[in-house]
Structures are given as structure tokens and as C-alpha cells.
């Protein structure tokens, strides 16, 4: 259990710091591109690099939202149960939510891994000579981080400590 918890927190930390690097680099590269254009200089790798930084940030931001329990959902039942103070049922619902999310993400990892294999075979360099196959790898990688966090939430719901 301790190991699972430590790993979950490691994912949180790494995502936070990588996000910081991503945001600051997309910011500085975009500003740099604007300034360079005044001097008629274009660096062709900035555009695709920045777009993939946003793409990576999508998943890492999602990883943080999972830890905070702030994912957007419809949640009509949850709000209702909260309002009638049905703690027990609410707890069960949280459990189902984490399990369903984990299983769906596992399916997504499988689906995106298959796409990754295809793209590795046929892909082309996008920037800095990095093949699109490796960039597509962001998808299963991101989903794997998310899946682990939901898995941890699920396991954690059995060991006393209540998930947020």
C-alpha cells in the first residue's frame, strides 16, 4: 500500500514539474517566435513543438485534476446523495467511478498502443527529426498515468482512508 501511495505521489510531483516546464517553454517559444519574426527569422520547429507541448500538458493537467478530484462530470446523483447525507452510498459511488475510469483508460491505452504501433511503422519526422510515432506515444503514456491514479483511488477506497 505504501508503495502504491508513494508511486501516486511521485506521478503527481513529476507531472507538476513537467507541466511547469511545458507551460514556461510554450510561453517563451511563442514569444520568441513573435520577436524573431520582426527580424524575418522563422524557426520551423517552434510551431509543432509548441502544439505537442500543449498536447502533453493536456494529459499532465488531467493527471493533476484526477488527484484533486476536479474532473468535469455530470454528477447529478452524487450531488443528490451529498444533499441527503448518504455517506455510505456516496462512498460506494466513488468506488464505482474510479473502477469504471480505470477500466476505460486501460481500454484507451490498448487502443492508442495499437495506433502507436501503426504510426511507428509509417510515421515521419515532425520536428527536430522526432518521428510522429514517438509523439503519438504521448497518448498511451498520458492515459497510463491517468489510469494509475484512478487505480490508486480505487484501491485506496478499500483501505480506510477515504478518497476525496
Amino acid at each position: 500500500m505504501k508503495v502504491l501511495r508513494a508511486l501516486d505521489q511521485l506521478i503527481e510531483k513529476l507531472s507538476t514539474w513537467t507541466l511547469l516546464v511545458c507551460v514556461l517553454s510554450m510561453l517563451s517559444f511563442s514569444v520568441m517566435a513573435i520577436v524573431l519574426r520582426w527580424f524575418n527569422i522563422t524557426l520551423h520547429w517552434i510551431e509543432p513543438l509548441v502544439r505537442h507541448l500543449v498536447f502533453l500538458s493536456t494529459f499532465l493537467g488531467g493527471v493533476l485534476a484526477t488527484g484533486r478530484g476536479t474532473h468535469i462530470g455530470i454528477d447529478i446523483l452524487g450531488k443528490y446523495l451529498e444533499s441527503i447525507h448518504s455517506e455510505h452510498l456516496y462512498h460506494w459511488i466513488r468506488r464505482v467511478i474510479s473502477l469504471a475510469s480505470f477500466l476505460t483508460l486501460a481500454w484507451l491505452i490498448y487502443a492508442s498502443y495499437n495506433f502507436l504501433l501503426v504510426e511507428l511503422k509509417y510515421g515521419k519526422p515532425v520536428f527536430w527529426g522526432i518521428e510522429s510515432g514517438y509523439l503519438v506515444g504521448i497518448i498511451p503514456f498520458g492515459f497510463a498515468l491517468l489510469a494509475y491514479r484512478f487505480f490508486y483511488l480505487f484501491v485506496n477506497s478499500f483501505t480506510g482512508r477515504k478518497a476525496c
Binding site: R37, N40, T42, H44, E47, P48, K124
Partner: peptide, 17 residues
């Protein structure tokens, strides 16, 4: 598009993919 991006880069034009 490698053909067009090579052409634009050769001319030292600004290209936005």
C-alpha cells in the same frame, strides 16, 4: 509537406504548417 517546406525554407520565406 516536405516538398513545399523545403522550397519555402530554401527561399528563406516564413512558413506556417
Amino acid at each position: 509537406d516536405k516538398l513545399v517546406s523545403t522550397m519555402i525554407e530554401t527561399m528563406k520565406f516564413v512558413s506556417v504548417p
